[in-house]
Structures are given as C-alpha cells and as structure tokens.
Simulated assay, not measured.
Amino acid sequence: MNKIIAIANQKGGVGKTTTCVNLGIGLVRTGKKVLLIDADAQGNLAACLGIEEPDNLEVTLVNILAKVVNDEPLDVTEGILHHEEGVDFLPANIELAGLETTLVNVMSRETVLRQYVDEIKDRYDYILIDCMPSLGMMTINSLVAAGSV
C-alpha cells in the first residue's frame, strides 16, 4: 500500500519544500521507495535537489499534466529524475503558472494531477507533493490527489 501526502500551507517560507525533501530522503533511508512531486511554479524542490536551472529542464510536471489534459499517450516515468540520496522527483518550473491558468477551462480540472498519480502510485511507497503557497488550482489538484495533508 502506498501513501500520497500533500505538504501544503497558504503561507510561503514556512518549510514546505524543506519538509518534503527531508521527509522523502528520511523515508528512503528506511527502505521506502519515494517520489517527490514539485507542484510549485517557483521550482524550489528542484533547486533543493541540485537542479540549478529548473526553467531549462526539458520535461517537468507541466509537460506531464499537459499530456493528461490533452489525452496524449503518457510514459509515467518521463521527466522523473533520480537524486543521489535515493529519492525520485518530478520537478516543476515557472511554466506551471501558465498551466494553472489553462486548467480553469478544463473539465474535471481538479483531478488532473490525481489522474497522473493514479498511473504511477504503484511504483512507490510514498508520493510527497510539495505545494505552492496559495489555494490555486495546482494546490487544489494536490489536495485531491493526496490521501493526507
């Protein structure tokens, strides 16, 4: 059985990303398989894990969610990076802010991230979602995808 946890708070600078990274690495050290998903357009999770220019990444959460929205074929492992500490992560960047605007016009817009998570969850013991500091469409998607917050 796997657990999907959203790390969320409407205030910025309270340690959401730090909690996500440290909890994920701690779980890996206990033998768990962990995926971190960066659902914040600031891309701080990627930066914490050593990606210096998240805006230059070829595949991020934006590309994956765009495929879900457009019903395009999806390789669930596409865009997932592996960190030397043993945790896998799906980075985000500033393009996520544009996708959030696009989601407003999408049917079942609050379930787009959950559709992706449902496809990949059997590969991991834990999926931790690092949310942005707002109650926007991506945070709502994260809360819908998660089993706990």
Rank of each mutant, 00 (worst) to 15 (best):
L128C: 10
T77I: 12
G31L: 09
T111K: 15
L45N: 03
V59F: 14
A41Y: 05
S148M: 12
V34Q: 00
M132L: 11
T102A: 14
E53C: 12
A145Y: 04
S148E: 14
Q115M: 14
D55N: 15
Q115F: 09
M138A: 10
V62E: 04
A66S: 13
G147W: 09
K32T: 09
P54F: 15
Y116E: 01
V149T: 12
A97Y: 10
N93L: 11
V34S: 03
T101H: 09
N44A: 06
N63M: 13
G86D: 08
V59P: 05
R29C: 05
D130Q: 10
T30H: 10
I80W: 04
K33Y: 06
V87Y: 04
G24L: 10
Y116I: 03
I140H: 04
G147S: 13
L61W: 05
E119L: 15
K16T: 01
C131F: 13
R29S: 12
G136D: 11
A39G: 15
L128H: 05
L96M: 08
H83M: 06
A46T: 01
A92V: 00
E85K: 12
L65W: 01
G24W: 06
K67N: 14
L90G: 03
R29L: 13
L36F: 03
L99F: 12
L135M: 15
V104W: 09
T60E: 01
L27Q: 08
E110T: 02
P91G: 13
L49V: 05
I120N: 02
L99Y: 05
R109V: 03
E100L: 13
R114T: 03
N105Q: 12
L23M: 15
L36H: 01
R114A: 14
G50W: 12
L61V: 00
L61K: 03
S142Q: 08
L96G: 00
D75H: 10
L65Y: 00
N44F: 05
V68Q: 08
L113I: 02
E85N: 10
T102I: 11
D75Q: 12
E100P: 04
V21S: 01
